[in-house]
Nucleic acid binder design. Sequence first.
DNA 1: CAATTACCGACCAGGGTGGTCAATTCATGG
DNA 2: CCATGAATTGACCACCCTGGTCGGTAATTG
Lengths: 211, 211
Amino acid sequence: MVKMHENFTGLKEDKRDSIINAALTEFATKGYELASTNEMVKAAGISKGALFHYFASKKELFLFLCDYVFKVVSQEFYEQIGHCDGDLLIRYRRAAMLKGAVYQRYPPMFEFIKRISVEKSPKIEDQLKERLSKMMAYGYQCLLGNLDTSLFRQDVPADKIRDLTIWALENYGNRSMELIGDQRVEEIDLEALNTDFAQYLDVLRRCFYKQ
Amino acid sequence: MVKMHENFTGLKEDKRDSIINAALTEFATKGYELASTNEMVKAAGISKGALFHYFASKKELFLFLCDYVFKVVSQEFYEQIGHCDGDLLIRYRRAAMLKGAVYQRYPPMFEFIKRISVEKSPKIEDQLKERLSKMMAYGYQCLLGNLDTSLFRQDVPADKIRDLTIWALENYGNRSMELIGDQRVEEIDLEALNTDFAQYLDVLRRCFYKQ
DNA sequence: CAATTACCGACCAGGGTGGTCAATTCATGG
DNA sequence: CCATGAATTGACCACCCTGGTCGGTAATTG
């Protein structure tokens, strides 16, 4: 009898992904306590027995997903942005592209992250908090560390410009996600999305940066 | 036997509010289907029988809350903003104050609205959608109708400035809500909150408006 | 071929669901 | 003071879903 996780990590990629995505979706939409393993196996197209063959318990599955998500986001996202450029807007454009790539493979991942960052179930609280704070600190550092604020216009505080930029673009990102949320992955018009995004970036550059 | 709602609307104000807030919170955190009437009565400090003495069913309670929330938001919020001034930033500052006032009386109200705008339960879908779209249209018109875009700088598109402003401030609002979410109502430092907010508004005015 | 592993799904006890209703408390007016 | 009717209670209902088990079958391996 091998360790349980090895049963799972040895699975074929598409099956593994479908289980991961089903579980992420369920946890993301209902939260830890109310998420149903029955719904997960139904959505993933496997049996109940199989799921508990891979993971000893719901809790173990959840924590595995956390670790997995954090690993993916760190490798595919944070590490690709970090310190690549001091220009906040360039960094953010890069972030948007990378986010799209992750989204294509694991659509529910960001919803999952959003959910677990407000999760309050005592059964997993401690272990989750620990993982989250590590993750947040790393993300914050990669996205906002080492910023070249000398690019900003100098007649207003740089930190305010930074905050407003992040907030506006975060909201823009969420709206885009919602808009494309219904469509199938193939039929998303990435071209149009990018030019639209570029226009907003251009406005921000004009208004917030030195001319 | 009077009509059920009249039983409820005739209640003493504090009792009524505590029931409303308990129900709003429960629906906001779990969504329609998973919200538990048992939890509501526990949080409101009334008996199960009392709740179903006021409302014939969970569904009727939910729809009552929708109507109630829409009435409050329309009267206390939208109508106080509408067309008061063409300046987007002035309008938004006013909106923030009003939001605070509503929040003091019904803390979970905005969470409830956020939740029902993504609610998908088929049992209430039609009736909810109808109410929501009416509400959205009215809110949009009051907040963004009749804007004086000639105040904006003219070298970038006015609609982009409007969008970015709204997004940034919306996010700012959410963060403030989260920050004060833990504190009790009395010990919130409104002074500090307002000056902080004013600083961000000032930056936006400097960067996005004609000088 | 046997042996081992991967997987299935009916099944379990326990707990939560929206809603009911006989019984009790309360308020009011005579 | 009681009589009356309304407000309120909470134990109770049948039902559904829960996380997890386990005897069995199918597939893989040596």
